[in-house]
Design a protein around this nucleic acid. Sequence first.
DNA 1: GTGGTCTAGACCACC
DNA 2: GTGGTCTAGACCACT
Lengths: 123, 123, 123, 123
Amino acid sequence: MISLDFRDSRPVYEQICGKIKELILEGVLSEGDKIMSVREMAASLTINPNTIVKAYKELEGGGYIYSVQGKGYFVAGRKSTAENADFSSIMQTVKSALSELCFLGTDKSEILSMVEKIWKEMK
Amino acid sequence: MISLDFRDSRPVYEQICGKIKELILEGVLSEGDKIMSVREMAASLTINPNTIVKAYKELEGGGYIYSVQGKGYFVAGRKSTAENADFSSIMQTVKSALSELCFLGTDKSEILSMVEKIWKEMK
Amino acid sequence: MISLDFRDSRPVYEQICGKIKELILEGVLSEGDKIMSVREMAASLTINPNTIVKAYKELEGGGYIYSVQGKGYFVAGRKSTAENADFSSIMQTVKSALSELCFLGTDKSEILSMVEKIWKEMK
Amino acid sequence: MISLDFRDSRPVYEQICGKIKELILEGVLSEGDKIMSVREMAASLTINPNTIVKAYKELEGGGYIYSVQGKGYFVAGRKSTAENADFSSIMQTVKSALSELCFLGTDKSEILSMVEKIWKEMK
DNA sequence: GTGGTCTAGACCACC
DNA sequence: GTGGTCTAGACCACT
């Protein structure tokens, strides 16, 4: 379900966060779903459990998942996620990247159609 | 002209890269302009010259500026920048960020108007 | 495994790049192999670790090796190298050097047999 | 006749050497021809005469040109050039570059035809 | 004066 | 232990 790219310059725990975020955004994981335990995930990726713990703590801080003592980690709802999100930071990222694309001569229509596509696919 | 934010988790040299990129994208610095010398910039930010060197080398690698021995650093043209740019990587960044915004309930029209604004301001 | 020539006018970090490139081209180092750590290499050549860092970063930029945080540097595959290579620049180098050899009266057959030999040895 | 590229990372005097070498290899300048005086060249490129002096001294050292006191610099013959040339160094350059091209998957026939072309064009 | 290289030594994040 | 960043200070080549 999750694979790591060791050539990726990002730290492993960050890659894991990204992958799980993706699964949530794509709807593969929905509110209330239980995600793999720290041990299971560590075994399946053959990496140190501490790295998984770090990734899960990060996701918990972002409101994407929550932990239940003795049960495991579960996917939180959009409301919880939205409350913890740093909108201005994400917007800033988008703005910079779009400015760069514009500067490099990318066609505006290409971006607009991408936006349409993303909002259409999201349920 | 450039200021650092020590609360920012990004390394100093990366912040400098970002700021100079912005100045170029906004048209404050245009093709052929000389930018501050390594020593000047280091003195003005009260940081070590080597850190500036690192930032300038990074920008040079990205095709944003070029160095002339004994003269200084100068901003390169869009052509040079476009040749060195990693479009797919930038597009990936935009896609992920937009997906997240969509998931969090951001209005599509807000994004569309932002795109219009950016492309309009860029001459 | 690697030795420096202090009479060589090229900077030290560039000599190191060249030697490691050679080892990769000759097949002594193959895809996935771990190379000496920054500190090990620095100690073995009795030079400053930062100089090794510079050399490794250069090779990383050229797609020859990649770094894994907390693990070390590993040699990348040909695909990665080919993607980052500047063919036209290498071809230009070959062209200039061959023109000079021709002018100086070198026999054509000597060059042709050298080409044959190189392509034969490479598997 | 000669133009400089300030974006080129090579020092100016080296660029001038390269250009004059090219002119000699291409046969535009032949044995005995007088080349531009230091002052003329400096004025035509709007750079410091000392830089031209440095370039000419370099070419003189390589046996490409020779100076006659009070007259100027003149193109030397192939014999003189060949005597001063460092064949093994040039061969080494060619060998390394060809090995790299081979590694990157360049077709052997492409190189062979290039060699044929160079030797054919040279008179 | 400008960039380019190198050293010595420090602290941090990641695994 | 490994790479990543930063400082302080030095010397060299180029213009």
